[in-house]
Design a protein around this nucleic acid. Structure first.
Lengths: 108, 108
DNA sequence: TTTCACTATCTTGTTTTACAAGGTATAGGA
DNA sequence: TCCTATACCTTGTAAAACAAGATAGTGAAA
């Protein structure tokens, strides 16, 4: 069991939350997740995820010049994306509750 | 994003916790997870997981007769299994902290 | 001036996960 | 006798997360 495996499906929601807070681009999202305490999330994970979420209509993107390198692709949430984020939060809270219930009940 | 995807890698740890609490068999673990608030976890998920964990030396099993059906396969944790459980708990707590940090910081 | 480090995106191929669906078999009750 | 609940397992599928590496722009040091 790696940290990796526990991440599945959760990064999506966290990306939505970050984008909702403020228009953001992939490279920065990876850094931010690191700041929040996640194991370094690889770009090979983030970019395909962002592209999938765009395909699904949860986010839109615009390219903008950077002062320090190639163009950035800034993402924003659509109405569907905001909805998906709200649903993610509910599911996360339910999951948190369930796992903690198992750990608490079984660990004493 | 389905509930499913958020589960990845977490069921393992919960099964270890359940087994640690008390010797248990697969069919019952599925029921218990349901009781703890998880979406019904399919047997197609649980049995392969248990077999993998046995292959990895985290659990051992013994067959015992049941009063109400075919033989049950009771699982117990090995020393390695207890170790894996302890590691899971740490990783879970770290994950919980990180996700909540993202949600809190970005949602205000 | 060329080379290095950092910034930034994307692709390919692999491993693993979770599951749906279905198979097998035992026991007890209607 | 047949149904339901109990109990285990297998096969095939879709998707997730990543490692590794390709591509390219910028600026600063050497």
């Amino acid at each position: 069991m790696s940290q990796t495996q526990m991440m599945k499906g959760i990064i999506d929601g966290c990306l939505l939350a970050i984008i909702d807070g403020n228009e953001c681009y992939g490279y920065e999202m990876a850094e931010r997740l690191g700041d929040y305490g996640f194991d370094a999330v690889s770009e090979g994970t983030i970019y395909p995820l962002l592209m999938r979420m765009q395909r699904e209509g949860l986010v839109t993107s615009v390219r903008r010049a950077s002062t320090a390198g190639p163009q950035r692709k800034y993402y924003s949430l659509t109405k569907e994306g905001k909805q998906a984020l709200a649903e993610f939060i509910l599911r996360w809270q339910q999951l948190e509750k369930s796992v903690n219930a198992v750990l608490k009940k079984e660990m004493e």
